[in-house]
Nucleic acid binder design. Structure first.
Lengths: 347, 347
DNA sequence: CTCTGAAACTGTAACGATATAGTTTGTTTG
DNA sequence: CAAACAAACTATATCGTTACAGTTTCAGAG
């Protein structure tokens, strides 16, 4: 008894600057540490009035559970890991994604840890790291492949995660995706409405799932609206802007050059525009361009380009909510969302 | 003895999937847990051959210290916290900054945690959070003010941090900054060389340190090169693009409109360009524009705009290296770096 | 042959939290 | 009135690591 009292006194009296722990509250309320812990968890075997008192004191002294203590004892990290490709910079998707996720996590106990990997070939490494070290309670990945080994691994281990992009493995998992099929289909429609017939798609690298979607939408559009697809496989959305520009310049000089282009990203469209103009072609006159974009810059500098917005920040919101729901045990089927191209006002 | 043996056996034999701990290694080598811990730390009271053996076994079974254990015992989190404004999205600085920091941290034991805050007025909250909960070993902040309360607080507590941007408090702390004075000075020089005389600056919000720098460079340029400064205080770099555009349109319609503009950011320049063109002005003919930019879009779509690059990814590198060095005890004076505007080839 | 000291190793407690298995108190019941 | 039970609370052990204070062993000194 005397023992506990003096320990408690130390915990409480250091006062001014020491961080309060359960022991501090236990001393202040005269209760046991276990009781305090259980009271704060609203356990059924603690008296109502006691819970009240404990909560009051805890709030008063600004108690916040020590994360290391909880993590060591329970394994719960209260961390969500965003695994991202360092190459993703090119697309500039990182900012709004990080911000979107942060906005949701800010209202929870979760922290966001960014775990990068260098090349597409190493995409599995950070996932393995998280699984092996238990570094997070949940993971968000992007750039999914139809048969994605990361998804396979996490499903097998029953580890909570959400993907930006879908897979095709017959496994239900949480995801958020942009409807690239629809985007490409509508893009073709717009071009054909402008009288364009020979169309090109600046597409994602072929191993990513959304390549399939965008390609499918493009081809469905070609069929439905009666246009012709011109091949353009020398570069893709992961290529450098310089390479895209060069390839596009060659394309436009070739016989049977296209008169309409669909670009899967805003930065890709910038390179395309540069190429077209270098070749002396005028947007809206000789050729038309429809592009997806996630910021507004293209819209402002080249209003002739028809754009459809993809809201990456929203994607961050959805993905964060999905992982958390998954951690809380909600079934994956309920955690799948799709967002649709937002048509931009044409000026 | 028998007791330890059986515990060790459990630790080791679970084998296939349990994560190895010091206990596992202790059992495998026949040593005590303390010895293993000290051996891995290369303590002087452990035999050379023993260290060798321990290291070998540890590597073999892929031992990685449990972060929660270390953190609970020592207080060392192995976390760097990047504190960022959710408003920063506008400028699109977040992507390359996060990536730059990640690239440096990847080679260390540190994880990157992103801690956001909503409005400029709440900038102190996340810093307090980190200090109070010991959530990180070091902090990176941006958008510094001349008298920055965050800097004051962390200096007072002797907490390791680095700032993106300088302060003016007579306190030496690690920072990385872009030389905005030089940028604005050179920008004015370029404009005057083009024959422009009446110049405007789209500047940062006045409470940030780099407002002072950019303003000083601009005014020094005005004096040295013999031009006139036209006031433009209705908007700043934090304003929405729509507001900047509207303000710029008004400005151009006013009597004594400027014939040269310096823009402190690429996205600001986009809004300015849109305004100029809406007013029927042609870049390079009626007016000239010099802008800082961190990506390449402006360069590609409006080569008439003279740009100077700011390498944010490099800033991330420098900041990450600086906090870590500070954590390791290096004096702040040695951890201050400046980067200079990178002139872009004009096409 | 004892003593000293260095080298090499180890047991114990503690960091803060929680799961588990209690204990205490008081009330109900047969 | 004893037995049974529920309500409210608590001691102990544990997660993995490290600081601290030992212990053991052996070589060399006296």
């Amino acid at each position: 008894m005397k023992n506990r009292l003096s320990e408690g006194a130390r915990a409480a009296s250091a006062g001014t600057n020491e961080r309060p722990t359960l022991k501090t509250i236990a001393f202040m309320t005269g209760l046991g540490i276990t009781t305090v812990s259980r009271a704060l968890k609203d356990a059924p075997d603690i008296g109502t009035e006691t819970k009240e008192r404990v909560r009051l004191v805890a709030a008063q002294i600004g108690y916040q559970p020590n994360r290391a203590g909880v993590r060591l004892r329970t394994g719960k990290t209260n961390v969500i890991s965003l695994i991202l490709s360092l190459e993703e910079e090119i697309m500039g998707l990182t900012s709004p994604m990080v911000i979107g996720i942060s906005e949701v996590l800010a209202a929870t106990q979760y922290h966001l840890v960014v775990t990068p990997y260098r090349a597409q070939g190493n995409a599995l490494d950070p996932v393995r790291y998280v699984l092996e070290t238990g570094a997070a309670d949940g993971v968000i990945i992007s750039r999914t492949e139809p048969k994605d080994p990361r998804v396979a691994l996490m499903m097998e281990r029953n580890f909570p995660f959400a993907t930006h992009g879908r897979t095709e493995m017959g496994l239900a998992h949480p995801y958020h995706d942009f409807d690239n099929e629809r985007f490409a289909y509508e893009a073709v429609r717009k071009l054909v409405e402008k009288g364009r017939k020979r169309l090109v798609l600046l597409q994602p690298p072929p191993y990513l799932t959304f390549y399939l979607h965008m390609r499918a939408g493009f081809e469905r559009g070609i069929r439905d609206f009666g246009a012709t697809a011109v091949p353009f496989n020398e570069v893709n959305l992961d290529s450098s802007l310089v390479d895209i520009r060069r390839a596009a310049e060659n394309l436009m000089r070739a016989p049977n050059a296209p008169d309409g282009i669909v670009s899967g990203s805003g930065s890709g469209a910038v390179a395309l525009v540069a190429a077209l103009e270098a070749e002396g072609l005028k947007l809206g006159t000789h050729i038309d361009l429809v592009s997806k974009e996630s910021h507004m810059l293209l819209q402002w500098l080249r209003p002739e380009v028809m754009t459809m917005r993809e809201d990456i920040r929203l994607a961050g919101h959805e993905l964060a909510k999905a992982v958390i729901a998954r951690i809380e045990g909600r079934p994956p089927e309920e955690l799948q969302t799709l967002s649709y191209p937002i048509p931009t006002d044409q000026g």
